[in-house]
């Protein structure tokens, strides 16, 4: 026999064609339809927001891991790209770019790396960044003036997001029908609203991305389904009781960050429960909190707050819920 050396290691001897990088790449692919729609509608400004956010997240992660933590860089796993992409899709396109950078600093250098980096963070980095900006720069974060896009969008509401307009009107004592009449809106034009953060823009694009993730078995549907189901249920009950001041299920699901949050941020592996039933409780909690904020809170919508709050419960849910073992009762 020749002297060639062979590998000797324990079984299994083969591995699925999967890696952290491939999972993150799938998430990026899934988010790209929404990003493309956002760029088409909001133009160069949106493109810059996306670029600044992604590049900042990647560079910050690289710099902090290499220089401060003295560890091998984890940039190659693409998780920083996902964070940057999600953060950008949660921001208005007219936002100053230095604020975007601050969001990236909070996401990467506060929410992610101090906890130990990928897999260790308690809170979703992109949402933490977004919420930090929302409370720190409320004016810039709610400036929904649409930037000039590459394609015209018909029958669209411009200016403030309809959610905030509606919230103002309801606070002022008017009813939903009065609000629609006084602004010459219809419910359907509200759904086509472009005065929204980029990621909220197209339910269709988000849905396509989510279906891609389901097909690739990157995520399971239980968390999004329980969020949307809970929101729909609460909306139906309140809307039926008093349609004048409580918005209906379709409106609540199609506006605000609902779909972006339910499909892409509540399903973040690290900050969501691993067990199916844990995930259902997590989702119901998010739906409940978001609806409470929409109906009774100060903010027009509360997907980000809901997800952050439920992120806190994940360690407990992981401790309480275990899957059924074979041959044990």
């Amino acid at each position: 026999m020749d002297n060639k050396k062979y590998i000797v290691s324990p079984s299994p001897h083969i591995h699925a064609d999967i890696s952290t990088t491939s999972v993150m790449r799938d998430v990026i692919i899934a988010l790209s339809p929404a990003a493309v729609v956002a760029i088409l509608v909001y133009g160069w400004a949106e493109l810059l927001v996306l670029l600044v956010s992604i590049v900042s997240c990647v560079l910050l992660e690289w710099a902090v891991t290499r220089w401060m933590m003295k560890r091998p860089s984890t940039v190659g796993d693409l998780s920083a790209v996902v964070t940057g992409l999600l953060l950008a899709l949660n921001l208005p396109s007219a936002i100053p770019l230095w604020i975007v950078f601050i969001g990236a600093v909070v996401a990467i250098c506060v929410a992610k790396l101090p906890f130990g980096g990928i897999g260790q963070n308690v809170f979703n980095p992109a949402i933490t960044g977004r919420v930090f900006l929302l409370v720190s720069f409320p004016a810039q974060m709610t400036n929904w003036t649409p930037t000039p896009g590459f394609v015209p969008v018909p029958d669209a509401v411009s200016g403030a997001t309809p959610l905030s307009l509606l919230k103002e009107a309801l606070k002022g004592g008017s009813t939903i029908p009065q609000f629609l009449a006084s602004n010459d809106f219809s419910m359907s034009s509200l759904l086509w609203d472009i005065g929204a953060s980029a990621g909220e823009l197209s339910a269709g694009a988000l849905l396509i991305g989510f279906i891609y993730l389901l097909i690739r078995r990157v995520v399971k549907p239980w968390i999004p389904l329980s969020i949307l189901g809970t929101m729909a249920l609460i909306s139906v009950v309140f809307h039926t009781v008093n349609p004048d001041i409580y918005t209906g299920p379709v409106f609540n699901i199609m506006t605000g960050g609902t779909l972006l949050g339910a499909f892409f941020m509540a399903t973040d592996y690290v900050t969501s429960p691993m067990n199916v039933w844990g995930g259902v409780i997590f989702g119901v909690g998010i739906g409940l909190i978001d609806m409470m904020i929409r109906y009774f809170g100060a903010y027009p919508e509360g997907m980000s707050f809901a997800i952050l709050l439920m992120n806190c419960t994940v360690p407990l849910l992981n401790r309480w819920f275990h899957q059924k073992k074979y041959g044990r009762t």
């Binding site: 590998i7 999967i18 067990n275 059924k324 074979y326």
Partner: peptide, 24 residues
Amino acid sequence: TRRQKESHCIRCGKCADACPMGLE
């Protein structure tokens, strides 16, 4: 067959999904 370098657990739960004994 070459084993890839180990990286951090991302808590995806794929191992628990795959375990035929229902372990984690």
